[in-house]
Design a protein around this nucleic acid. Structure first.
Lengths: 162, 162
DNA sequence: ATAATATTGTTGTAAATGCAACAAATTAAT
DNA sequence: ATTAATTTGTTGCATTTACAACAATATTAT
């Protein structure tokens, strides 16, 4: 089987909107709309961004705000504002800590935060169960792995300035 | 080989940020940054969104603004503003037409628009050629097809209200 | 025929986002 | 030792974006 390389593919691309970059962007828009609509329909007390930030903190634990920003791919001001909102809602606690002898602010979920994260995660699962099977599960899983692989490679090429 | 279905996959997802929806969003952010950085670095006379809009008009021809909005997945006001900007720059011409006996505004590229589209498309190609091969070409092509498939299925599930 | 509904494009406004600049504090350089 | 550069988090601002409301017009319903 002949291997067609990336350059060859790009040369064959007559139009940017047929590139994987644009297709990914468009697909992500549908994902974002789907999530936002669900969060509004269910009248949840957090936004989708706040929820995924909670989820990130739960997984990656006590990181400073800048490291969290790098994880959620938002800039430092946006990250700070999301944390302000989560703190006002009593879902996280912030505390001072040091990282390389430098004063930083770290974050943990409160009991209420843990509870909400579990509840909304369950709601999302129930919602996806009620959805028609868009693609067979193994295909989705396979696609997800390929996207992650592509994302990790892309990460090396993009200067994020966070 | 046992087929694992979508529901099974979602049940196994303990965290939203590991879902294909969030992974797609994150990957698209890298794509967006990559493109925006390039357009700024080269000091191009159009934004990435304006360029992809030009490309869309080139492919889909004379469509009304609402149909164009559905293609570029932006709302009607945003679409109108992008067209205003492209018109001010002399890259498109707008003209009145009818669609189902209804007065609509349609768009075509000017000579300058065509020229700029070709030039920037070539610049993008050269840029991608200069990039290291992120993934082997066949893998990227395969991934793109799967993403398109996923996107088309997703489209049926999302009410875009455009 | 009249009213209700739908389509298209625009305007206005509020929210989100990114970016530059800043203050505080530490490390590195000369 | 003094200066320069780096890291972290915040504030302010300008751009983008979404969403509701509107005007104009055509279709549909009663």
């Amino acid at each position: 089987m002949q291997q067609i390389n990336f350059v060859t593919i790009m040369k064959q691309e007559k139009h940017y909107i047929n590139s994987i970059y644009y297709q990914l962007e468009q697909t992500a828009k549908y994902c974002k709309h789907l999530g936002t609509q669900l969060f509004q329909k269910l009248d949840l007390p957090v936004s989708l961004d706040e929820f995924s930030t909670l989820d990130t903190i739960k997984i990656y634990g006590e990181v400073c705000q800048r490291d969290l920003a790098k994880l959620i791919l938002k800039d430092r001001p946006s990250t700070g504002r999301i944390l302000n909102s989560l703190e006002e809602k009593g879902l996280i606690k912030r505390f001072a800590d040091t990282k390389n002898n430098r004063l930083v602010r770290k974050t943990t979920l409160t009991i209420e935060g843990e509870k909400l994260l579990d509840e909304v995660t369950k709601i999302l699962k129930d919602y996806f169960i009620s959805m028609p099977e868009i693609l067979s599960g193994s295909k989705v899983e396979e696609l997800k792995l390929k996207i992650k692989e592509f994302k990790e490679a892309l990460k090396e090429q993009v200067e994020m300035n966070i």
